[in-house]
Amino acid sequence: HNLTITQGKLFFHYNPKLCLSEIHKMEEVSGTKGRQERNDIALKTNGDQASCENELLKFSYIRTSFDKILLRWEPYWPPDFRDLLGFMLFYKEAPYQNVTEFDGQDACGSNSWTVVDIDPPLRSNDPKSQNHPGWLMRGLKPWTQYAIFVKTLVTFSDERRTYGAKSDIIYVQTDATNPSVPLDPISVSNSSSQIILKWKPPSDPNGNITHYLVFWERQAEDSELFELDYCLKGLKLPSRTWSPPFESEDSQKHNQSEYEDSAGECCSCPKTDSQILKELEESSFRKTFEDYLHNVVFVPRKTSSGTGAEDPRPSRKRRSLGDVGNVTVAVPTVAAFPNTSSTSVPTSPEEHRPFEKVVNKESLVISGLRHFTGYRIELQACNQDTPEERCSVAAYVSARTMPEAKADDIVGPVTHEIFENNVVHLMWQEPKEPNGLIVLYEVSYRRYGDEELHLCVSRKHFALERGCRLRGLSPGNYSVRIRATSLAGNGSWTEPTYFYVTDYLDVPSNIA
C-alpha cells in the first residue's frame, strides 16, 4: 500500500525493539523526510534493546553428524571492536523451508527459537588472519532439518551509529543413524509349514526405512522333555500350542467401542483428552525405555581390526524358502538304536541362519518350516543398504507352526516275539517326523474274553527296548493296539495285532 503524509511529521519514542533503520525507511515511504526535528525521533529510546544489523554474515563451514552440527561463519568486528559482546545463534526444527525470524513471537518477546549466546573469538592483530567464530550444536535429532541463523550482539553506541551483522536463515539436516526397533511384532501360524509375521514401523526411523531383515531359527525343545518319565503317576503330560491366527481386521481397528449394538453396526467412541494424553505418555515412556535398553543392555560386537582377528559373527547367506525346513542338525536320541526319531534339535552355532529381506511392506510369510516346531524370529529395521547396512537392534518374537495331521501315527506293522515265561516283546517304529517329539506310547492289549488293559511306555523305555515287553501273560489269544502321544496330543491307534500265548508248562520236552 502507498502511504503519503502531505502535512505533519513523524514522532517515535520509547520503541526499544524498533531499529532506527526501520524508522528511516518509514520517513522515505511516507514522504516526511526532512520535516522531523532532532528530538522527534529519539536516538536513545528507539532500538536500544534490539540488534540492528546492516551487514550480512556468511557461514564459512558446515559439518553434520547424526546428532551434531558444527558451524563456522566469517569474522565480524565493528569499528570499535570492544562493542562486540558476542553472537546469538538461533535454531529450531523446520520440516519445511518457510521459516521466518519472527515465527511464534508474542507480545512478551518470546519466540519459538532456541538461542545460544556465543563469546567472540580472540581478536588477531592481523586483519587478514582473524579467527572464524563458530559453535557445535549438540543433542539434535537424527535425520531432522533445522533452520539456523546467527547475528551479532553489540553494545549501545553513544554516537548512535547503527552497526551489526546478521546471516540469512539456512537449512541444515542432520545425518541418518540406526533406527529404533520395529514396533509390535506379531507372529502367527496359518499352516503346519508357515508363519505369518506382521509389525509396525519404528517410532524413530532416523532416516528413510529402506528394508527390513527377518531372521528365523528353529528352537530346540526343553531338555526336561527328553529326561522326564511322563508315565509316572502324578506327572502331567506336557503340551505345546501353536500360535493362533490373526483376529479379523475389524476387531483390530483402534479407537473402536468394545460393545456392539445388537441391531447392527455401531460407531466408534472418540477417545477423551485424558485417554489420548495417557497414550502419549505411555508411548514416550516406551521410547525412553527402549533407548535405555539399547544403550545399557546391548553391547556392540567388536569388529575385526587390522591384526587379522576374525569377526566372530557368522556370515549372512541367503537361502531359498524351500530350504528352511531342514535348518537344524538332527541327532538321534540314543545312538545305539537307529530307529528312534531325530527330534532332539541342538543347533550348531556355526550354522548360517536363513533370512529374508523385506522391502516396502511390514509383513512376511515364512514358508518351508517344520510342522509343530518353535521358531525364534528376529526382526531388524534398516535405513541404508549400501555401502553397508545400517540397521536397528533386533526385536524378537516366537511362534510355533501348526501340527501336521497323521504325523504322530505309527507307520509300519507292530511285530512281536514270544519268549519263555510268557513274555512277549512288542516292537514298532517311532514316527519319523512327529509333531514336536514323542513323549510316550500307549499300549492297549486284551486277552479274548477279558477286559482291555493299558500300559504306558516312556520315551526312554522305548529307546532301550525298541518297544516294550509284556510279562506274566496268561495263555490265550491276544490283540494289541499302540498309539503315540506327542507334544500336540495323541496320534491314531494302530491296526490290531494278534498273537497267541501258550502255557509254557505244557511245552513238550526233548528229553527222552
Rank of each mutant, 00 (worst) to 15 (best):
S203G: 09
D204L: 15
N206T: 02
G207E: 02
G207T: 04
G207P: 02
N208V: 15
H211S: 08
H211M: 01
H211P: 02
Y212F: 14
L213T: 15
F215V: 14
F215S: 10
W216K: 15
R218V: 06
A220G: 14
A220L: 13
E221H: 15
E221V: 15
S223N: 11
S223D: 14
E224V: 10
L225V: 05
L225M: 06
L225Q: 05
F226L: 07
F226E: 07
E227R: 08
E227L: 11
Y230K: 04
L232C: 15
K233V: 13
G234P: 09
G234F: 09
L235R: 06
L235F: 06
L235E: 03
L235T: 05
L237M: 08
L237V: 05
P238C: 15
P238N: 07
P238G: 07
S239K: 15
S239R: 15
T241N: 15
W242H: 12
W242E: 15
S243F: 11
P245L: 10
F246D: 06
F246I: 07
E247K: 06
S248R: 08
E249K: 05
S251V: 09
Q252W: 06
Q252C: 14
Q252N: 07
N255R: 07
N255D: 07
Q256P: 08
Q256C: 04
S257G: 07
E258N: 15
S262A: 07
A263I: 11
E265Q: 15
C266S: 05
C266M: 10
C266R: 05
C269R: 09
P270Y: 11
T272A: 05
T272L: 04
T272I: 01
S274N: 05
S274T: 09
S274W: 14
L277K: 14
K278L: 08
K278D: 06
K278F: 07
K278R: 08
E281F: 10
E282V: 06
F285M: 06
R286P: 04
K287H: 02
T288L: 06
T288N: 05
T288Q: 10
F289T: 03
E290V: 01
E290Q: 04
E290L: 05
Y292T: 03
N295C: 03
N295D: 04
V297Y: 05
F298N: 13
F298K: 00
V299A: 12
K302H: 09
K302W: 13
S304Y: 07
S304L: 06
S304D: 12
S304E: 08
S305W: 09
G306C: 11
T307M: 13
G308E: 15
A309S: 09
A309P: 12
A309R: 11
E310P: 07
D311C: 07
P312D: 04
R313C: 13
R313F: 15
S315H: 10
R316E: 12
R316H: 12
R316I: 15
K317H: 12
R318I: 03
R319S: 14
R319F: 10
S320Y: 12
S320P: 07
S320W: 06
L321H: 10
L321I: 14
L321W: 09
G322D: 15
D323P: 10
V324N: 11
V324M: 12
V324A: 12
G325I: 08
G325A: 11
N326W: 04
V327Y: 13
V327T: 10
T328V: 14
V331H: 15
V331P: 13
V331R: 09
P332K: 10
P332E: 12
P338C: 09
P338T: 10
P338G: 12
N339Q: 14
T340A: 08
S342K: 09
T343V: 12
T343I: 06
T343Y: 12
S344F: 05
V345H: 10
P346V: 14
S348P: 12
P349T: 13
P354Q: 11
F355N: 11
F355S: 11
F355W: 13
E356I: 07
K357G: 10
V359T: 12
K361E: 08
E362L: 11
S363P: 10
L364M: 09
V365E: 04
I366Q: 05
G368L: 05
G368Q: 10
L369R: 02
H371V: 14
H371C: 08
H371R: 15
T373D: 10
T373H: 13
G374M: 10
G374I: 04
Y375M: 15
R376D: 06
Q380F: 15
A381G: 03
C382R: 01
N383P: 02
D385A: 13
T386N: 10
P387R: 07
E388G: 11
E388Y: 15
E389I: 13
E389F: 12
R390Y: 09
C391A: 00
V393M: 12
A394K: 08
A395C: 11
Y396A: 07
V397I: 06
S398E: 02
A399M: 07
A399T: 07
T401A: 07
T401N: 03
M402S: 13
M402V: 05
P403M: 04
E404W: 12
K406E: 14
K406T: 10
A407L: 08
A407T: 09
D408W: 01
G412T: 06
G412D: 11
V414P: 08
V414D: 00
V414R: 02
V414Y: 01
H416A: 07
H416L: 09
H416S: 12
F419T: 14
N421E: 14
N421W: 11
V423R: 15
H425K: 12
Q429M: 15
E430M: 15
E430R: 01
P431W: 02
K432D: 14
K432V: 12
P434N: 04
P434G: 02
N435Q: 04
N435D: 03
G436T: 13
L437S: 03
I438K: 02
V439M: 06
V439E: 12
V439N: 04
L440R: 10
L440G: 02
V443L: 09
V443R: 05
Y445A: 11
R447K: 03
Y448K: 12
Y448T: 14
G449I: 11
G449P: 11
D450S: 11
E452N: 12
L453D: 08
L455P: 03
L455D: 15
C456S: 08
C456E: 13
V457F: 00
V457I: 11
S458W: 07
S458V: 06
S458H: 04
K460F: 06
K460G: 10
K460C: 07
H461I: 12
F462W: 12
A463P: 05
A463Q: 08
L464N: 15
L464D: 06
E465V: 13
R466P: 06
G467E: 03
C468E: 01
C468T: 07
R469F: 13
L470M: 07
L470S: 01
R471Y: 15
G472P: 07
G472T: 09
G472F: 07
S474T: 09
P475F: 06
P475I: 09
P475Y: 10
P475G: 08
G476P: 01
N477Q: 12
N477C: 13
N477F: 15
S479G: 14
S479Q: 10
V480M: 08
V480R: 03
V480Q: 05
R481P: 01
R481F: 04
R481G: 04
R481E: 08
I482D: 00
I482R: 01
I482P: 01
I482V: 15
R483N: 12
R483F: 00
T485E: 05
T485M: 05
T485L: 15
S486E: 01
L487P: 05
L487E: 03
A488S: 05
G489W: 15
N490Y: 15
N490S: 13
T494L: 04
T494D: 00
T494Q: 01
E495M: 03
P496M: 03
T497H: 06
V501H: 08
T502C: 12
Y504R: 05
Y504G: 09
L505T: 14
D506W: 09
D506A: 08
V507N: 15
P508L: 12
